[in-house]
Design a binder for these strands. Structure first.
Lengths: 208, 208
DNA sequence: TAATTATATAGACCGACCGTCTACTAAATG
DNA sequence: CATTTAGTAGACGGTCGGTCTATATAATTA
């Protein structure tokens, strides 16, 4: 697909410290890992996809584990930005914002025929086979995403969209618990029914 | 741990068609697979656990895939029986029965320090790396478990425990979607908070 | 501008492990 | 006692993650 006419030797210093190859590896990495998880994904497959030799991989990343860590960090940050883009959009009502984020994510899954899931969910389920170092980061990512949703639910409460006595942090936790379950089922079914079922249930329960 | 003084050659015909070794392999298999999933689990690890050589494994099972299929079938049946034991126990109210099943499953996870998850959930998330043959069976298992819960919710409706207009099948679907998400998080956290959070939310929403 | 250093590609190689397969052993069968 | 059946033992080839050396070219510096 890509050119394999990669030039050898030190590259010219175009722009800031930014490597084309490194970027391609990370991009292919997230594709493969969201589909198959960390353990099942092979470095070689990623390399073949972008036509890069092994030497380059281990030039840029110290190990598969380090590669995974960076992938996870970027993925988490990418979704944090995406969450903010929706959840802080004051042109909509708070619950509308959350629904808009969900719709976006749903479309994202559809775009890849429901083959790709959530990197964080995948790695979470894999913890039994993963370096223990991932556990802390995975938990932090969920906590971060959860806080952003909780904040949005807080605004919903202020505006009377949800009951006064709602515990926004608990609700946000439940959202992500169910969301990951729904992504799992969606991947299995190859259709977004689980996503819709869960979100409808969640919103109905939210509004009491 | 186990004796490795396995006798070679054809074994004496004790009891009915039932092999000790085969049973040990299946038992160890479910342990390893609920922890690490199918792809990450190695035959060798399972063999070492029970002190059985590779030849025996491939005597009893045609392939790793066939082994996985049998494991899945047994696991599904085991939980179907467990569900029935609780959900058909007419000495309790329907929703109480479901709660009792949940408590039992929660204790089951605690018994192994929340390291072992659900075989069906694990394999579902792994589909991207699994033989396509598993997909159908996994979906059927969820459907089966879902039907049993739906039936119980139907009785809850008849007895007025949940609103008249509840869609029991949808609710049962949501239950399993969220349940698998909660198991995932519980494994990650090493604590049952997610399990409790989700089930509390689910029951509260059920009762409207 | 010649020598040196920094950056990156290329891929052979090694040890570990996976799943398959053949050889072997011993009881059952007739 | 010859053959079949049931199960054990482990060698084998392939793949994977990770390392290592060789090579190429830009940047830097003397």
């Amino acid at each position: 697909m890509e050119k394999q006419t990669r030039r050898r030797g030190r590259p010219p210093k175009e722009g800031g410290g930014f490597s084309e190859t490194r970027e391609l590896l990370l991009q292919a990495g997230v594709e493969v890992l969201t589909e198959k998880g960390f353990s099942s994904a092979g470095i070689d497959e990623i390399l073949r996809r972008v036509g890069v030799p092994k030497g380059s991989f281990y030039h840029f990343f110290g190990s598969k584990e380090a590669f995974g860590t960076e992938l996870l960090t970027r993925y988490a940050a990418y979704f944090a930005r995406k969450l903010d883009r929706f959840l802080l959009d004051t042109t909509m009502q708070p619950l509308q914002r959350l629904q808009a984020f969900i719709d976006g994510a749903r479309n994202g899954m559809a775009r890849y025929e429901y083959k790709r899931g959530c990197l964080v969910g995948n790695m979470g389920q894999e913890m039994g086979a993963l370096p223990e170092s991932f556990r802390g980061e995975l938990r932090e990512v969920f906590q971060d995403w959860q806080d952003r949703v909780a904040h949005c639910l807080g605004e919903a409460k202020e505006l009377g969209e949800i009951p006064e006595n709602s515990d926004c942090h608990q609700l946000a936790a439940v959202f992500w618990i169910g969301w990951e379950g729904a992504v799992l089922r969606t991947k299995l079914e190859g259709a977004p029914d689980a996503l819709d079922l869960f979100t409808d249930f969640f919103f109905a329960a939210l509004r009491r």
